[in-house]
Nucleic acid binder design. Structure first.
Lengths: 189, 189
DNA sequence: GAACGTAGTTATCGACTGATAACCTGTCAA
DNA sequence: TTGACAGGTTATCAGTCGATAACTACGTTC
C-alpha cells in the first residue's frame, strides 16, 4: 500500500482546507501547526515547508476564506436579500465565516491586520457592486452580518447551538433565522 | 523603599486591569500570564495563585468588562441614542469592547462559551430594560454595535486607525462616527 | 537503469509557558 | 518577643510548539 502522493499544489489546497477547520475551532494563536498537519495526514514540518511560517498559513487561510465567500456572493441572486440568504448558508457551514472572525480578532497584529482589512474591504466592494445598494443599506447589511457572525462563533445560533435562555430568546427570535441556523428542536410539553 | 504591599482584593482588581490590557492586545490564547504579571509589576506565579488558572483569569476579565459596560449603559441617557453614544465612548477607550470580542471569538471553548453567552445576554437584557426598545430595534442596535466592534478590533476605526483605502472609505463615512473614533487627520491637497 | 527532481519523513532543538513547591517577609496581636 | 497569617518571591519543571536540518522514497526521463 503506497501512501498517496499529491503534487505540491494539491497538497497546498488540502492543507488550506485542514487549516480552515483547525483555525475555525481554535483561532490563530490557539491552533498548532501540528493540529493542521494531523488533519491533513502529513507531518508538521511539511506544513511549515509549504507555507513558511504559521502566520503565513493563517493569512493564506483567511484569504482563501474571503475568496470563497466572495464567490458565493457572486453566485447568489444579486440583491441584498439574495446575498443575505447566501450569508445564512455560509453561517450554517460555519467554517468560512468563523475563520474570518478569528482573522478580524487578530487584526491588531501588524502582519495580519492589513490582510484582514483588505479582505473586508474587498467583500464590502463586492456587495455594493453586486447589489447596487447605497452606503447606508450596505452598512446595515454588514452590521447584521457581524451580529450573526459573532452569535455563530458563540454557538448562540447554528447547527449545534446552545438553546438560548431568558432574554436571548427574544434576540434569536428577532433574527428571522432559517431552520439551518436554529439550534436543535426542543421537545416536551 | 519598601515595595507597596496591597491587600489580596486590591491586587486582584489591579491584575484584572492588567489582564484587560493584555488580553485586549493578544486575545486569550495569544496572551501569556507573564505579560499580565509584568504589566501589574508582580511575579507570574502570583497571578496564577490569585486566579487559579489562566482560563479563570480570562473569564474574570471578560465578566469584569461586561460589568463595566453595563454600568456605562446605566449611566447613559436611557434611550437607544444615549446608549449609542455610550458605546462610541467605550469604543474609543477600546479595551472593554475589544476584550469582549476576544471572549466572543473564544466562545467555542466549553468553559468560556457559557460565560460569554451569559454576558451577552445580560447586556441585551440591560439595553432592552433601559431603553424600552422592541426586539427589532434592539437587534439593529446590537448589529451596529458588532460591526463597530469588529472594525475597532481591525483598527479600521479608533484613535490610531489605519486610514481606510478605496471602498472602505464609503463604509467608514456611513458610520457617522464621532471625532474620537475617526483616525488621524489627513493633511494635504 | 541511473540520475534527478519532487514529495515527504524522522530527528531534533531552543524557546516558551502555565503551573507547582518551597521559601521569604512585613505586620499585627498577645 | 514571638508567633502566625497574609502578601509576595525565586526556583524549577514538564509539556508544548514552531522551525531547521538531514535524510528517504517515488516516479519520470533519457
Amino acid at each position: 500500500m503506497t501512501r498517496t502522493r499529491l503534487t505540491a499544489g494539491e497538497r497546498h489546497d488540502q492543507l488550506i482546507g485542514a487549516a480552515l477547520t483547525a483555525f475555525t475551532a481554535g483561532g490563530y494563536a490557539g491552533t498548532t501547526t501540528d493540529q493542521v498537519a494531523r488533519l491533513a495526514g502529513v507531518s508538521q514540518p511539511y506544513v511549515i515547508r509549504l507555507f513558511g511560517t504559521k502566520q503565513q498559513l493563517f493569512i493564506a487561510t483567511v484569504e482563501h476564506a474571503a475568496d470563497r465567500i466572495e464567490r458565493r456572493f457572486r453566485a447568489a441572486t444579486p440583491d441584498l436579500d439574495g446575498l443575505g440568504d447566501a450569508y445564512d448558508e455560509l453561517l450554517a457551514e460555519r467554517e468560512l465565516i468563523t475563520v474570518m472572525l478569528h482573522g478580524f480578532a487578530a487584526g491588531a497584529d501588524p502582519a495580519i491586520g492589513p490582510v484582514v482589512r483588505a479582505c473586508f474591504g474587498r467583500l464590502y466592494a463586492t456587495v455594493r457592486e453586486l447589489t447596487g445598494a447605497d452606503a447606508e443599506q450596505t452598512r446595515a447589511f454588514f452590521a447584521s452580518g457581524m451580529l450573526l457572525t459573532v452569535l455563530g462563533a458563540m454557538n448562540v445560533i447554528g447547527r449545534d447551538a446552545v438553546p438560548p435562555d431568558g432574554p436571548m430568546n427574544d434576540l434569536v427570535d428577532s433574527l428571522d433565522l432559517p431552520a439551518s441556523l436554529r439550534g436543535p428542536e426542543k421537545f416536551g410539553s
